[in-house]
Structures are given as structure tokens and as C-alpha cells.
Design a protein around this nucleic acid. Structure first.
Lengths: 205, 205
DNA sequence: TATCCATAAAAACAAATGTACTCTAATACA
DNA sequence: TGTATTAGAGTACATTTGTTTTTATGGATA
């Protein structure tokens, strides 16, 4: 992962930049110049200032002049991780590209009132939602705007909550699994409460 | 979302806490006590110290004693969302529980040098990793510690990068797809470079 | 070889900042 | 009403920290 050249950074600048990003990831706040000095095995703060200045000129960092520990990474999103390329899950055809993008999973979280559910069972397995997955849901305020094919969590009073594809045909609501072993559920719209629609799936292994 | 009571925070403490979280969101670094003082319309730093101390005792914040701008939010994960319960993806059996946990997807990001890859193809479809998913990977430093069955991204020089199950039998390395349409790849360990092992899967819909 | 330039060391300084202490005002409670 | 508790104001101090300046070093270049 040496991208010092394409990013127009010297070795020392790049090393500092990577270290700063890791420090932010661990402590959630800015390091001080003397901390960076120690981390870079230097004995005076001047070289760090020089490198910071270069990083600023090249648009990687900024800070509030004269204020302690006010570094801010402008380029990369805080919690992002680098997307190093694409990987073939088919054959050995795709190659590693060096495009530097950023995965920001937190963008989904910015929506108001997003909540998560743990998935039990395999009825959505053909949609690649497995037992134990976490699904992130956005509350449904207006069930009329639901589009056919949306994955929703629905509460059928007296029965329970389930995760299914949503379909509306006439006055009937159909909740369909992504698994041929399960039959579609047919309901009148009075008999179902929609809680949320699917935003994202998260699986930790 | 007034959770001052349930969180056992006084009005003043809660107001400060919310302000700090917003400051972090905007500037990505910790505010100073005097900044908080101004924001709370106070004229001395003492009350802020008191409130911070209370927030620390209740487990909301921490900081490095004596160091400037080293606040850290400990309790709530910044981007966390509430896990409202579990949802049946099988039948209508599970019911909504009220257990209040917190989904913290960022915990995975705390590991050093985590990177992401975009998945192309369907060779891992039976492991519920679909075309277009993002996979979060942890760099592999020591390929000898890899356990059979781990999902890895491997670079076969001259061919490309691929996402597969890892198996070792004797001196041979096998890379197996989670899709019967793909044949296992048999390699000598000199002919493969392991880049990362799977930590998590992220799919935005 | 001589010169130039970038980097590092060293020291010193001033501003920012966390912390401690005292005093006063407000509030709650018996 | 009186007292105890808590919160805020004011002040002072030591440390942390960004910044500046001077000097030394190493490498590149003519």
C-alpha cells in the first residue's frame, strides 16, 4: 500500500500522515506535535512542523493556527477505510486497481432514527441476508410510498415481526421470502404494521 | 430525543454532552474547556470541569489528564445505532424484544490498516457475499496462522486477486469458492500472496 | 571543491490550556 | 427560618503546546 508517489508525498510526509490517521482512529482526537515528534523518532518539533506544512499545502490536513491539537483530516473521512480496489469472486480476472476511494459506512447512520435488527432464520437467504446478520433499517413513516420489491420489517399483530420483500397488488399486501421454502404471506393492509425498510446489511465474521 | 432522565444526566450535563458530540462531528477533534465555557455561556472554567467530571463518572467521556483537547467519547459509539431486537426471517415466530444494545460497526475499523474491497462476481454467493458487496479485510501478516475455512483475498501473481475460502492440506494451498460452479484452485504456497482475511461484509441497498 | 538547499537539532518564547483554590450566589431541605 | 449542598465566578499557577530562530549536517549540483 505504498501510495506516496501518486499522492505526491515524500516518504517522511506519508509516514507521518499514516500515523496521524491511525492516531485519530484510536483516540478520536488530534495528536500534538511533540507526540508526532516522538513517534517519528525525532528530537525536535521543527521537522514535524515542516511536514505538516507540506501536508497542508497539498490538501491533506488543516488545523487552527496556534491552537493545541486541532488537526483535521480534510481529505479522508474520519471513519472511512480505504477501498483498495476490487476483488474477483468469479474467476481470476480482475486485478488490483490503485484507485483510492473511501468507504464510509457511517453515511447511512446519519439518517435520523436508523435502527438495527438481528436476523433470525434463513427466509431471506436468496437475497444474501443470512441468519445472524444485522440489518439497518430506516423507519417507515408513510407506508403508501413503499415500492414493490423493497425489503421491509413488518409487524403482523399477534404473530410477530418478520423481514420480507414487500409487494402491493390491489388492496392486498404480500410479504414474500427470498427462499422458495417459504410461502408468501397475504394480508390486508389493516393487519400489518411496517416498521422499517432495509438500508444496509452488516455481517461480522 | 430527550434522554436526559433515562441517562441519569442533569440538564446542564446533557446539554454539554450533546454540544461536545456536535463539536466532534464538525471538527473531528476535541474542544477545549474554555471553548465549552463560552458555548455554555459561562464565565469561568470551573463549572465545565465539574460537568466533565460527572460525565466521566457516569461513563460518557474520558480524557488524558493534564493534556489539552484529549476528550474521548467512550460510552455511546459515535455512529452507533440502537439494536431494537431480532426479526424473524423464517416464520412469524420471533417477537420484538426491548433489549437495548448498540450496534457498533466502527469497532471493526479500530484494527490497524483495515481496508475494503469491492466484490465482483458470484463465486462466494453461498457464503452470502454478493456481487457489489464491500468486504472489510484485515491485512495478513503471518500466513502460517491462517485457519482452514477462513475467507481471504489472495493475489496469484500473473493472474489477479480473488476472494475465496482458504484451505491448507500438506504443502498445497486450496482456494475454494462458495459456489459449486467454480472449481477449487490448487497452488503451491510460493505462488500465492495473501492480502487480507475477512472481517465483515457491508451491503448498502 | 565550493555552493546551495532541504532537513534536523537545540533552545527559547508566548499563547493556550488543564487544574486547583477561594469566595459568592442559588437551591433544596428539614 | 436556617443550614447544607451544589453550581458558578474569579483568580492564579504550572504544564502543555505551537511557533520562531539559530545553528549544524548531509546530499545534490555545477
Amino acid at each position: 500500500m505504498d501510495n506516496s508517489q501518486e499522492n505526491n508525498l515524500s516518504e517522511a510526509q506519508n509516514e507521518l500522515y499514516q500515523w496521524i490517521k491511525n492516531y485519530f482512529r484510536e483516540f478520536q482526537h488530534s495528536p500534538s506535535i511533540r507526540q508526532m515528534m516522538q513517534a517519528m523518532n525525532l528530537k525536535s518539533p521543527a521537522p514535524i512542523q515542516s511536514r505538516l506544512k507540506h501536508l497542508q499545502e497539498k490538501g491533506y490536513l488543516t488545523w487552527q493556527e496556534g491552537k493545541a491539537r486541532t488537526l483535521q483530516i480534510v481529505d479522508e473521512i474520519f471513519e472511512g477505510v480505504p477501498i483498495l480496489g476490487s476483488v474477483a469472486a468469479g474467476g481470476l480476472i480482475e486485478t488490483y486497481t490503485d484507485i483510492q476511494e473511501n468507504l464510509d459506512v457511517t453515511e447511512v447512520f446519519k439518517k435520523k432514527n436508523v435502527f438495527a435488527l438481528t436476523v433470525n432464520g434463513d427466509s431471506m437467504i436468496d437475497a444474501c441476508i443470512a441468519d445472524g446478520d444485522m440489518v439497518l433499517m430506516e423507519p417507515i413513516t408513510d407506508s403508501y410510498s413503499l415500492k414493490n420489491g423493497t425489503i421491509v420489517s413488518a409487524l403482523v399483530p399477534g404473530l410477530g415481526t418478520t423481514l420480507k420483500y414487500f409487494f402491493k397488488r390491489g388492496n392486498k399486501i404480500f410479504l414474500e421470502a427470498a427462499n422458495p421454502n417459504y410461502e408468501p404471506i397475504e394480508l390486508n393492509k389493516e393487519n400489518v404494521i411496517f416498521q422499517g425498510k432495509l438500508l444496509a446489511v452488516w455481517r461480522k465474521v
